[in-house]
Design a protein around this nucleic acid. Structure first.
Lengths: 110, 110
DNA sequence: TTGACGTGCAACCATTTGGTTGCGTATATT
DNA sequence: AATATACGCAACCAAATGGTTGCACGTCAA
């Protein structure tokens, strides 16, 4: 139960360059919407929509503090992307890549 | 010189579930368009368009054989995705992840 | 050489996407 | 209490996306 609706998936969320940039920005520090949008050549509303899409995909979390809404990175869903990629690593495989796959399978056990 | 136009980037190319499925299918064997499209509930033309987008992103290569056009996976551009992901691995970092990053940096030297 | 097969292309269509403006409302500040 | 700040929401818009049908054209088979 408690299944995430996940209206937007990770693949679609990171397809847009602005949203990838937002993830990078928010990985450094938690920020409120206006501060975030000051970095972009578009309106606050547009940035806010991108943030909502990222939130739908679980890639950012919002927190209300007084009149501001602060966003921070939530990297966990990117693991799905990583798992997806592992399948294709075999196609440029070599000994180091094999070690990497081993590391990943070990990570899953933690 | 000879810079790839790259009208579609990898992030956008893999955003669509049908295209991710196509990559998986073509990773097993090279296939002509009609054979490919028989796996999908859409027209050959629609599949063909998806293949073109994948080709623009460099993720598949086409080869004309008689009257058919055969497609095969070209995994190399996925490395860009992998490099992008490495940055975020620090956020679920542990010793094994650190080893993995090391492995990746060694891979780049090959 | 006649026809069937495999494909690409152009035209078209509905929906989604990425953006805008304007307004309402809750929270701070003076 | 009045004003300024931070934000969300609804309405709207142009362009991109994902799909369709119909047709033209090169290639293979009878």
């Amino acid at each position: 139960m408690e299944a995430e609706p996940a209206k937007h998936d990770v693949f679609q969320a990171i397809a847009d360059p602005t949203r990838r940039s937002l993830l990078e920005l928010l990985s450094e520090r938690e920020l409120p919407v206006t501060a975030i949008s000051s970095h972009y050549p578009m309106t606050r509303t547009a940035v806010s929509k991108h943030l909502r899409i990222l939130a739908d995909a679980g890639l950012v979390k919002e927190r209300k503090v007084g009149r501001e809404t602060r966003y921070r990175l939530e990297p966990e869903p990117l693991r799905e992307l990583q798992r997806w990629l592992v399948y294709y690593e075999r196609f440029w495989e070599n000994k180091l890549a094999a070690l990497k796959s081993f590391v990943e399978s070990e990570e899953d056990k933690l």
